[in-house]
Design a protein around this nucleic acid. Sequence first.
DNA 1: ATGAAAGCGCTAACAC
DNA 2: GTGTTAGCGCTTTCAT
Lengths: 329, 329
Amino acid sequence: MTVSTVAAAAGVSTATVSRVMNGSTTVAPDMVQRVRAAAAELGYRPNAAAQGLARGRTGTLSVLVPDLANPYFHDVLKGVTAAAGRSGYRMLVADSEEDPDDELGLSHELLRQTDGLILCSPRMPRHDLLTLADDSHAVVCANRLAADIDLPAVTIDAHAGMTSLCHHLARLGHRRVVYLSGPERSWSNQERRHALDRAAAFGLDAVAVACGATMADGHAAIDAALDHDPTAIVAFNDIVAFGALARLRERGVDVPAQVSIAGFDDIPFAAYAAPAITTVRNPKELLGRRSWLLLARALAGERGLEPEVLPPQLIVRDSTAAARDRGNL
Amino acid sequence: MTVSTVAAAAGVSTATVSRVMNGSTTVAPDMVQRVRAAAAELGYRPNAAAQGLARGRTGTLSVLVPDLANPYFHDVLKGVTAAAGRSGYRMLVADSEEDPDDELGLSHELLRQTDGLILCSPRMPRHDLLTLADDSHAVVCANRLAADIDLPAVTIDAHAGMTSLCHHLARLGHRRVVYLSGPERSWSNQERRHALDRAAAFGLDAVAVACGATMADGHAAIDAALDHDPTAIVAFNDIVAFGALARLRERGVDVPAQVSIAGFDDIPFAAYAAPAITTVRNPKELLGRRSWLLLARALAGERGLEPEVLPPQLIVRDSTAAARDRGNL
DNA sequence: ATGAAAGCGCTAACAC
DNA sequence: GTGTTAGCGCTTTCAT
């Protein structure tokens, strides 16, 4: 079942079949009919590999995420597919499972099979990022800015987000806050942490506790966090906040009466948690769409694309309230 | 940068390069060295499309899920990649976004680009499934059994799962239970519902309320559910249970004191909910692994593969307790 | 407007 | 053990 089969059945050349299948306008209407009929009759479907080889492009892009289990990435992926789909591109998703050392290899593998790659929150060392940028012009970086590396990027203004959150907490009278720190190699985590440190200007006294990016991490980190007797806890992301909330409940700590807690990203679960989690909304779909736009431009040959920075938004819910007046937990 | 480039650089033929790249044993050690060196030097990476065309297979399989935002599918996907990866296969993920009418088209498109397809909880009409089975032998169906359609399948024993859950509820003294029904076209939903109906044998009197598969659906369905004044609510899945829990909280209904609630699947969030959700654990990763195994066999030419049925497991947590003695909500 | 034919980059007979 | 070569299925000049 190839072009030749269809061509024979329709009594035309393979070139004509190809033209019809690709919607070329320079084909006589009756030929179009004949070919269409023959193709439909035979149930013909073009072979993607052959098309890819002949055209020099696959029509597929790939996205590499560190953890597919994090709902955060779904919305990003949705944004990417939606935007890329409109340009006739399909999306291949890969998961590095939070293994920074595997990312470079995976990226090369993906680049081999697809036309371009979107790295979502990559954890790989700076050096690998540099290698990748040297190897290919079809890579864009989401959620990470790498100075002096020629990689189109789109990020969130973590500083602005954290600042508005800190403002919120400061107005509620909080002073001692613990930050549940995300993965070491996460750029977002570093940004959030630094932004929080700068919030000392509002009178917030922040201390970081090593944590991670999963619910289990959040759950496990609470005991250490409470040792600092904070009135508020800021989690690396909503997932962590979620796990933390569970542990606080176990320990009988009332949220937000005794301790306030806030997350980051605004994943769907955040709004349904008990209590609903105050968070900094990340324009995830937009991030996905912009990433594709950047990739499309890179694919079209544009170089030296400027990094884009997207604005987050504070979402106040029920997990934050006025700091308790005095006393320890 | 092609085989020829490398061949020229190494002073050998393209065939030898190909042999080395594919780990053929019938190559002299020094040639292997030369080729390896040249390839590394040039940073050569084989073109996947060309390989696919020449080999007649792409080395990629695809998985179609109805909703990538449902954490349930992550574990399934994890199982698939893990198993397929061991056989040198990569995985392409596609999301039909709960649009049953788009599934057939998407499936064909995926089949065109990859060697095989795993349909995860497909919602498409039976007729489309039949078409697909006729068109290809490289399709396996997870979470759906279609009688008289020659499609390798792996499912969960919903009946067993629902029965153990009903047992649990019956022993706690529940009689009036509401089932929050999932998507109309979901086979799992039908199975769960039927199994629940059969639980009348335990003295459970179940009534179904239309709901859906999202947190918002669960949230929205609670009001109608409470109209039936149930002592227990069984949700289509954990996501729905999660949304339902939020609404119950809003209405001031105490779970589990006034109403018990149970989910299905045991997604990670279930254990961290407030209260932790009693559920029926679905061996998701196993399901993924088995799906791949079936697909691999189909790809190898086996036909008439027997459907596999996996056992679920009741996980009792804090959202279910003894039925309230008397009185309405 | 249509067809013939030359590749796209790689693999796998087949010959040596 | 190594090289030659004929495709894999499609697109795309280039003629006509």
